[in-house]
Amino acid sequence: MKKTYLQAVTDALDCAMGSDPNVVVMGEDVGVYGGGMGATRGLVEKYSSSRVIDTPISETAFTGAAVGCALMGMRPVVEIIFSDFTSLTADPVINHAAKYHFMSAGTLSVPMVIRTPMGAGTGAAAQHSQSVENMYLNVPGLVVLAPSDAYDAKGLLISAIELDDPVMFFEHKKCYPMSSDVPEGSYRIPIGKADIKKQGSDISIISYSYMSCAALEAAALLEEDGISAEVVDLRSLRPLDTQTIAESVGRTRRALIVTEAPVFGGFSGELESVVYETAGSSLLCPVRRLGGEEMPVAYSESIEAQQIPDAQRIRKTVKEMLS
């Protein structure tokens, strides 16, 4: 059955809450309002306000409270309405959630998920459009996920909620209205497994979240150019599926890495290293990286459109690499 990415997220929350009474949803306006993007719509009516908990605008405290109830065995799913605002949750997430399992020598665990919409493309400008996932990738103890389609969003979110470790779950605003086949009921996408969204033989485009959608669009255009591009959708950023990356690049012998985040100091550098370390000897040309321009996201629609990679820029870069 076709469902939007947004409905898939709601479905996942519904499945998880239905099967485990320890799962609660917390965040600003998650109740009757249905969440900042509409992902929690209908849940409070089904599960009551004791499990769909509206919070004041106090991201630090309610995320810290989520850490506390997770330490006790509950499974809070926290919604932070824009991933930019996870700066306010940095202390409970980075210093507490990510550390307690280790600091307690394994006696404690923090089974919590932070769900948060990321990315540009909606005119929300500099404080509501960032790709901050980079900042969480350098924190051992955290799992970082970023699905690109509805099927993965549901299966990965269910896996995230069932995991005993803290998870940063980045949803993309541009993906919310996109539809794909989503089965009814619970199913799980394994954490740490990339997915090849389109097979190809000339180049591997490695990306995640909405950039995988742009890469798929580019791959379709490249077919017209006689170029066969493979799209590797990472889905799980940490842990990272280096094996799928290595196998794909081993076959195609070219790699383009596409992120919405600016490349400097970011995850694309890590991905480039992985390609060189695992498949470097097979490369026919140097790895290229495409990322957002080194600037905050602009409000102006034309500037915003130019500063983030899109299908045409990906197509152009691939053609340069094959020329």
């Binding site: 609660v24 810290g64 506390g68 065995g73 509950m74």
Partner: peptide, 15 residues
Amino acid sequence: GGVPISVGVAMDLKY
């Protein structure tokens, strides 16, 4: 850092 955590622990006890 422990103050919000304690609120969460109390949430669990109440829940």
